[in-house]
Design a protein around this nucleic acid. Structure first.
Lengths: 131, 131
DNA sequence: TAGATAGTGATAATAATTCTCAAACATTCC
DNA sequence: GGAATGTTTGAGAATTATTATCACTATCTA
């Protein structure tokens, strides 16, 4: 895998945000700096880097795939209102997930995909505001 | 929601199989009996019935959505080789998932999506056969 | 620095799903 | 049972997300 300006830019962008971009969000974020960047290049590199284990591909509910530059084990919440995916950190959840991993391994599974559903911080505040 | 022949047929088909059909698999399964059935009708009804809670929509990894006529809580394994989704029943897994549900509820989440990844029965045998 | 390889941008192609709309059907009310 | 009303259908067009193609350019290796 050669080093290219485009690939570096995509990886840096993904690592510098805690949100979990879709391919077209990344494209939109990078275009001002790289006006010739092509959407196909973004897709190609995201796929490549997730194969190589440099980033995570989140392909759970919702139409578009999202990508995560944070490789440390952590959990995700998808907002049922705005669709954003945010990180969840909670000790109780982490230990439940660990147990789940053990149960899955015992069954011979390679792993699992998990995503919490609910309202993100932002939408929770907005819904409360309405009442 | 009116009662129609198409809707009944789709629901019955989903309930009579333990595999988890995609829209086009259902379409293919029903066409011999209902040659005028349209794929749009299948999609429309699947969406409607999952909204109404008559069936489950499984929209995890993989491009196509799958639908499940079994409403009892149970877990799924997606085969990394053939893409099929099968039911997994295991006491250890169930209790880990229950804990996970409690942790998620404590955090204010509505629920979660979970899918194990690995080889299904059929592919496991075939892979073993090769060696 | 030349030759081999890999990656890029532009665009076409594909896959899955959703939308549109006139005609057919189901339900309600008399 | 038949008219009025609302719902659903089939057929096809449209949309969305993603992948493939390909001539050209950048990167790497010797």
């Amino acid at each position: 895998m050669n080093k290219t300006i485009q690939r570096e830019a995509i990886l840096n962008e993904l690592r510098s945000v805690t949100s979990h971009h879709t391919a077209d969000e990344l494209y939109a974020a990078l275009r001002p700096r790289m006006p010739l960047l092509s959407l196909g290049t973004v897709y190609r590199n995201l796929e490549q880097m997730s194969q190589a284990g440099l980033i995570l591909k989140l392909e759970t509910a919702g139409r578009q795939k999202r990508f995560d530059g944070n490789l440390k084990p952590h959990n995700h919440l998808r907002c049922r209102r705005c669709g954003a995916v945010s990180d969840v950190s909670d000790v109780g959840l982490d230990s439940a997930v660990e147990r789940l991993g053990e149960a899955a391994a015992r069954l011979g599974a390679d792993g699992f995909v998990l995503e919490l559903n609910g309202l993100c911080e932002k939408c929770r505040l907005e819904e409360d505001g309405k009442k």
